[in-house]
Simulated assay, not measured.
Amino acid sequence: MNKIEPGDRRERLPRWLLDCAARYTAVFAAGWAITSAVAPRMFDTEASHVGSELPFWESYWGWLSNGPGAFAMVGLPSLFMLLLISGGRSRGDSGGFRLKSGMLLLIPLWFTVSYGLGLMQLTMAATQWAFTFWLMPLPVRESVPQVVEP
């Protein structure tokens, strides 16, 4: 793991938040594309009989077009959570910070419970955790015990 020394450019808050926001937005877009693929098929409102489903690709594009709304419901609150937790990013160890961040980033998924629990929520939770544990910028200096030389 590369060390981040005090005063390093990567440790400054505005740069870290910008880096976080850019990475999170890209991860959310990829996660929503996967979520759209595993989502249940949309119903065909123009069909003459009830319960007619759209073909996969039409349903996929329908879910994919809901991405901006999903970002407003899940992505923006998640970015706000990142803003709130950014104060503790240089205290403690990176594992504890990432675990706390991962738990907090699951909170905005409650907005999507109205879609029903299932594979959609599982893929969005996996997206949030993938960002938290693998793609969130590492702004934390590891706590190094002070060694007293005799």
Results as ranks from 00 to 15, higher is better:
residue 2 N to Y: 07
residue 3 K to T: 15
residue 3 K to G: 06
residue 5 E to N: 01
residue 8 D to A: 15
residue 9 R to E: 10
residue 11 E to I: 09
residue 11 E to A: 15
residue 13 L to W: 13
residue 14 P to V: 14
residue 17 L to Q: 03
residue 17 L to I: 08
residue 19 D to Y: 09
residue 19 D to M: 14
residue 20 C to N: 12
residue 21 A to E: 02
residue 21 A to I: 07
residue 24 Y to N: 00
residue 25 T to R: 03
residue 28 F to C: 05
residue 30 A to Q: 06
residue 30 A to C: 14
residue 31 G to Y: 08
residue 31 G to E: 10
residue 32 W to A: 03
residue 32 W to M: 09
residue 33 A to V: 13
residue 34 I to F: 10
residue 35 T to N: 13
residue 35 T to A: 15
residue 36 S to D: 08
residue 37 A to C: 06
residue 38 V to C: 10
residue 38 V to G: 04
residue 39 A to M: 14
residue 40 P to L: 14
residue 41 R to K: 12
residue 42 M to T: 04
residue 43 F to K: 13
residue 43 F to W: 12
residue 46 E to T: 14
residue 46 E to K: 13
residue 50 V to C: 04
residue 51 G to V: 10
residue 52 S to N: 00
residue 52 S to C: 05
residue 56 F to C: 07
residue 57 W to V: 10
residue 63 W to E: 04
residue 63 W to P: 01
residue 63 W to K: 01
residue 64 L to H: 07
residue 65 S to P: 03
residue 66 N to M: 12
residue 66 N to H: 00
residue 67 G to N: 01
residue 68 P to R: 00
residue 68 P to A: 04
residue 69 G to I: 05
residue 70 A to V: 11
residue 71 F to Q: 06
residue 71 F to I: 02
residue 73 M to W: 02
residue 73 M to V: 08
residue 75 G to Y: 00
residue 76 L to K: 07
residue 77 P to A: 04
residue 77 P to E: 05
residue 77 P to K: 00
residue 79 L to E: 05
residue 79 L to Y: 03
residue 82 L to E: 03
residue 82 L to N: 01
residue 83 L to A: 13
residue 84 L to R: 10
residue 85 I to A: 08
residue 87 G to P: 03
residue 88 G to D: 02
residue 90 S to D: 09
residue 90 S to R: 14
residue 95 G to M: 05
residue 97 F to D: 01
residue 97 F to K: 01
residue 99 L to R: 06
residue 102 G to I: 07
residue 103 M to C: 11
residue 104 L to T: 06
residue 105 L to G: 01
residue 106 L to M: 08
residue 107 I to S: 12
residue 109 L to E: 00
residue 110 W to P: 00
residue 113 V to I: 15
residue 114 S to G: 05
residue 114 S to E: 02
residue 116 G to F: 10
residue 117 L to A: 11
residue 118 G to A: 10
residue 118 G to W: 11
residue 120 M to G: 04
residue 121 Q to E: 14
residue 122 L to K: 05
residue 122 L to T: 12
residue 123 T to A: 14
residue 123 T to M: 15
residue 123 T to K: 09
residue 125 A to L: 15
residue 126 A to L: 13
residue 126 A to D: 02
residue 127 T to I: 09
residue 128 Q to L: 07
residue 129 W to V: 04
residue 129 W to S: 03
residue 130 A to F: 11
residue 130 A to P: 02
residue 130 A to E: 00
residue 131 F to R: 00
residue 131 F to K: 02
residue 132 T to H: 03
residue 132 T to Q: 06
residue 135 L to I: 14
residue 135 L to Y: 12
residue 137 P to N: 07
residue 137 P to H: 10
residue 138 L to V: 10
residue 140 V to Y: 02
residue 142 E to L: 13
residue 144 V to Q: 12
residue 144 V to W: 12
residue 146 Q to R: 11
residue 147 V to S: 13
residue 147 V to C: 08
residue 148 V to C: 08
residue 149 E to S: 13
residue 150 P to I: 09
